[in-house]
Design a protein around this nucleic acid. Structure first.
Lengths: 339, 339
DNA sequence: CTGAAAGCGCTTACAG
DNA sequence: CTGAAAGCGCTTACAG
């Protein structure tokens, strides 16, 4: 049986395609008897609208792409979930694009060979510079996510990393910690994300009257927990003796936990640790992880707000928005001074 | 500047739309001088093919949907990654559909109101019965993933859960464990996944000559690590004293780890634990987790093979395939008897 | 190797 | 409240 088209329904119901379209879209100004007639024809034929035709006629697909480094990183998977949920509430579906954190793929994302697949893209770059982003083809609306520097012309939603990092240091200092390490700054140069968190780290130390000791900044790869573990292990074995470690993300904190316990250091008794992102795992670990949590729902809401405005034709300057965050205090760095 | 269409290119190059289409698709039988002429026009106008037109004309979108419970569950995020990679290698993009493990959404996935969004769907149901799946609209090809029972008419790719569970028991028994618990069977009825792993668990015990003790089967929710932790904690507090715990998935193992260490039980010295899925986290935990690993690349490859064959018109009986798995041995349940 | 023409299945001003 | 007609931007037999 060939696919049923709108015109088949129209023929059977004895009306024009336009009227069927009106019924399908729930248009109110349709005579009740007409609506029933059409609906019966739809049911009888088992008609379902074909989106390919709709997409071509409307010039829209009601799909947006979410482009970020890697779905296997829990933060991004959880981000995708909350954005998918919000998008779905607005009648949009999500297409995933993993960049693998390679600049080539990031470029490809912004200058797609093909047009018309999605109505807009939410993009969290790792390497693309502000300049390059500013020069991308403007025919598909883009909203940037994350810590990279955004050009003035492009919308951007993020949390205040500097304030959050300072807040973490404040929390650790308030609980009696004095030698707070940072894990870790990428070599040869820290990522934009690490840079901002380092600035906040330093601001926090200064605000608390603690010395800023470069030897407490661990350098190394942040690729995964194992890399962070190795970096911290090397620093500890070289004599670094922190009483707290501010980790740049939860995976690094997981690695830190292992490096510390392998050396007989108890968390939080000997060393407190904090993570960042508050992935689901953070609350299930043992000890559970104190972590910085972005307001994911707000992030998703604002990002989609901005993107849909662009899709609807807004073409002004980039809006740069900051959404809320909080420090979720758990066992790994409790509020009270640890014994 | 309005969007450039294929016909604009044709006009500028002084050829027909057909010839431009040939060049765009790299069709070989195009005279070199014609190709150059067309390519120049494409470059000059900045033409990019519009997929909405293409999709309507071809009746394809080169997108497939991946439908499963929840992106926040690491196993599914990692599955999505490997499938996206394999799909991309074949020129397909991935659309995500989270069912939230609700039967209503699962139904909606199989009987989409709209047609023509994707060319096929890879679907891992939680609740839909074989009967219901068999009755779904056949206009979009479907391949099932996971442990649910598949109807004869539908393709299905999975690993051999029974054999894998028996293998885990064998491994634990070989390392000297005698009281091997199972964490956990859902109440009031275990999921199909748990059922199969329980069968393998029992087979493994019998094969090793160990008694099958129902009191070692912990019941409870498997929603997340915390639920598993609570279930095991309750069982331990009620007097259960296992020397190993076979966890139905890695998150349950994470919960088990906490329940055990909160009670002063060391892993693996006092109690060995094994997980299932071998999510990235498994190797970073402390202790690292012995876990069952499905051959994800093979799974993705076969699932896509079957789906693309359906998309290409294959309409025969369902193929039910089993892909490989392995037991990745790590610290939580090492091979040698633990002291 | 290339062209003219029809068609994919919708939507949307424009009329009435 | 409803219809006739054109158009969205491609592809694809069919000719030549």
């Amino acid at each position: 049986m060939p696919n049923v088209r709108l015109s088949d329904v129209a023929k059977l119901a004895g009306v024009s395609p336009k009227t069927v379209s009106n019924v399908v879209h729930g248009y109110v100004h349709v005579r009740e008897s007409t609506r029933t007639k059409v609906q019966n024809a739809i049911d009888e034929l088992g008609y379902r609208p074909n989106m390919r035709g709709r997409n071509l006629a409307t010039g829209r697909t009601r799909m947006i792409a979410l482009a970020f480094p890697d779905l296997r990183i829990p933060y991004f998977a959880e981000l995708a979930h909350v954005i998918a949920e919000e998008a779905s509430a607005r009648g949009y579906r999500l297409l995933l694009e993993e960049s693998g954190s390679t600049i080539e793929v990031e470029r490809a994302i912004l200058s797609a060979e093909e047009a018309g697949i999605v109505d807009g893209v939410l993009f969290q770059p790792s390497y693309l510079t502000s300049t390059e982003i500013a020069q991308h083809r403007r025919d598909v609306p883009v909203v940037l996510l994350g810590e990279s520097i955004a050009p003035l012309s492009v919308d951007h939603v993020r949390i205040d990393n500097i304030a959050a990092a300072a807040q973490v240091v404040g929390h650790l200092a308030a609980s009696g910690r004095r030698r707070i390490a940072f894990l870790c700054a990428e070599v040869p140069a820290p990522s934009e994300t690490s840079k901002q968190r380092l600035i906040g780290y330093q601001q926090g130390l200064e605000a608390c009257g603690l010395p800023v000791d470069p030897s407490l900044v661990v350098t190394g790869s942040v690729a995964d927990a194992d890399a962070a573990c190795a970096s911290l292990a090397a620093a500890l074995d070289a004599g670094m003796a922190p009483d707290a470690v501010l980790c740049r993300d939860d995976l690094a904190a997981l690695g830190a936990l292992r490096a510390l316990s392998e050396r007989g250091l108890r968390v939080p008794a000997d060393v407190a640790i904090t993570g960042w992102d508050d992935i689901t795992l953070a609350s299930s670990m043992h000890p559970s992880l104190t972590s910085v949590r972005a307001d994911g729902a707000q992030l998703a809401r604002r990002a989609l707000d901005l993107l849909l405005e662009r899709i609807d034709g807004y073409d002004g300057l980039g809006r740069h928005e900051i959404v809320g965050h909080s420090l979720v205090v758990r066992e790994s760095a409790p509020a009270a001074p640890a014994g």
